[in-house]
Write a protein that binds this DNA or RNA. Sequence first.
DNA 1: TGACATTTGCAACAAAGTTGCAATCTCCAT
DNA 2: ATGGAGATTGCAACTTTGTTGCAAATGTCA
Lengths: 140, 140
Amino acid sequence: MKKQGADILKQSALSITASRKDILDIFLASSSALAHQDIELKCSDKFDRVTIYRTLQTFLDKGIIHSIPTTENAVKYALCKDECIVSGHHHDNHVHFLCDACGITICLEEVVVPQVKLPKGYSLKDINMVVNGTCKKCKA
Amino acid sequence: MKKQGADILKQSALSITASRKDILDIFLASSSALAHQDIELKCSDKFDRVTIYRTLQTFLDKGIIHSIPTTENAVKYALCKDECIVSGHHHDNHVHFLCDACGITICLEEVVVPQVKLPKGYSLKDINMVVNGTCKKCKA
DNA sequence: TGACATTTGCAACAAAGTTGCAATCTCCAT
DNA sequence: ATGGAGATTGCAACTTTGTTGCAAATGTCA
Ligand SMILES: [Mn+2]
Ligand SMILES: [Mn+2]
Ligand SMILES: [Zn+2]
Ligand SMILES: [Zn+2]
């Protein structure tokens, strides 16, 4: 049986509500990262825009989703994998791909973000790597 | 003599106007990347908000500045270096640092973005690497 | 200097995000 | 199973951010 939104909510000790379940199911059904607006288009008939904002924030806080900064000034969100939580801390250390042609944003789970050495004085907490280019489907 | 905004405008074959000069000078005087709002705070008394938007877009088009996507859903901008233009094309291949404590965003010109190998089918055009952490000044 | 093209400011919008509060819903202990 | 405490939601009102069209002002170059 496939993983459902409700399962994830239980795991994260969040109360189970219609909006949270539905929004999680939207993520589970999507193969690419979603912007707030993408989600709004899919369920603003059922839920208020504000609820979507708050739900996404809750998911971020709980480490259910992670955010992906894009060059188009639009943050996108994607589910975190289970293996993501190692010893109580999150590890979204994969590369993200953004297609300039179709705009799709994808987690490249199998591509690990390379380490970098920072100049003296800077302490590193997190690295974000976003690659632009052309995706499989849009290839000429 | 220090480089002035007007010099850069000439180099880029842009007409020299007060707003362009002033905004360039703000960049030249800043050691960190600036958001639209940062610039607005410094000169909205002299120029319209719309002018700032259009000026930043022009600078982007001409390769005078580059944009930095941040996790806070706010694009920041920074001047490109001269050496940035190699054979007519831009090369902003350095890492950016974003301090979680003070929010400052800095170009780490000396840290080159490492290459990554993408899965089959993806073609790469550009890589963006943003590192979060604590900057020199904010260090505990 | 003057014509012409470019740039700017303004006004009016549209879209995105935030906040407070009352109504509703979840969950847990009885 | 029920009900009450606390969490969640919808709504309204608002702020901030970004866009567009157009007329006035400015810069460029002959
Ligand atoms: Mn991801
Ligand atoms: Mn930079
Ligand atoms: Zn594509
Ligand atoms: Zn700092």
